[in-house]
């Protein structure tokens, strides 16, 4: 069997006394698109952020492409890796954020080039053409020399996706990427993600767009209280939810 792109085993995470992840198991293979749904506070975003170690986790294993992220076992003890190692591991995944988080002092193309040049050591002219290619792909090439403040929310988010994906990550993480957008800009961003999914990109998404989760995912995971409540193919999860909690959640999310 091929190595899973993402393997999460018995993941636990607390914020002080509050345990927000209470033993998560999740495996993703090449090309899988998994959507995490659930009410706020259920741990979706935290789970996503543990994958690239924006949050440390206390117990369990997160492995990307067979490599444990952030920690190693050393004579029976769990040791955090060096910052340099962690930086290298983080570049194995790409992440798009709710608030885009573009670097405001750089043009769109420089935003995309930064990681290529600094992390991958790509020569400048090569980084430029890679960045240009991805900006083209997400439909903002014409705006490559604009600064984030000169772009619409939808354009900024597409640049942010290009910035992440230009690094050629093994896994893309999307954290509520349409939540901060005006309604009329949501679709242009979803279309980009859908397009990437068609291309076989492995993706883990946190989303409140139920229709989108239904359309794009190979699997949907419903989280409740730090655990996986229900998981399965979208058709099954959305059409015949097993638990009352999910039924209620879907009803409140106005999924038809």
């Amino acid at each position: 069997m091929a190595t899973p792109i993402l393997e999460i085993k018995n993941l636990h995470k607390r914020f002080g006394k509050l345990e927000v992840l209470k033993g998560i198991d999740l495996t993703m293979l090449q090309g899988d698109v998994v959507s995490l749904i659930g009410s706020s506070g259920s741990g979706k975003t935290t789970l996503l952020r543990c994958v690239n170690l924006l949050e440390d986790y206390e117990d369990g294993i997160v492995a990307v492409d067979g490599e444990q992220i952030g920690f190693k076992e050393k004579s029976g003890r769990r040791v955090r890796l060096s910052e340099k190692e962690i930086a290298r591991q983080r570049a194995m995944t790409g992440m798009a954020f709710q608030h885009f988080n573009l670097f405001p002092h750089m043009t769109a193309i420089n935003n995309v080039m930064l990681g290529l040049i600094k992390t991958r050591g790509t020569p400048k002219d090569e980084a430029y053409s890679i960045a240009e290619k991805w900006l083209e792909r997400v439909g903002v090439r014409a705006r490559k020399d604009y600064f984030p403040g000169q772009l619409s929310g939808g354009q900024q988010q597409r640049v942010a996706i290009a910035r992440a994906i230009a690094m050629n990550p093994k896994l893309m993480l999307f954290d509520e990427v349409t939540s901060a957008l005006d309604p009329e800009l949501v679709n242009e961003v979803l279309a980009v993600i859908q397009d990437l999914a068609k291309d076989g990109m492995t993706m883990l998404l946190v989303t409140h767009e139920m229709q989108f989760a239904h359309d794009v995912s190979s699997r949907v995971v419903f989280m409740q209280d730090g655990r996986i409540g229900e998981a399965g193919p979208p058709e099954q999860l959305f059409r015949s939810p097993k638990s009352e909690r999910l039924t209620l959640f879907l009803k409140n999310s106005k999924f038809h």
């Binding site: 690239n52 170690l53 924006l54 910052e83 340099k84 930086a87 290298r88 983080r90 570049a91 995944t93 790409g94 992440m95 954020f97 988080n101 573009l102 670097f103 930064l114 990681g115 600094k118 992390t119 991958r120 942010a160 910035r163 992440a164 690094m167």
Partner: peptide, 10 residues
Amino acid sequence: EAAKSIGLTF
């Protein structure tokens, strides 16, 4: 966080 996510060191 964005800088970390593209693998930049501190």
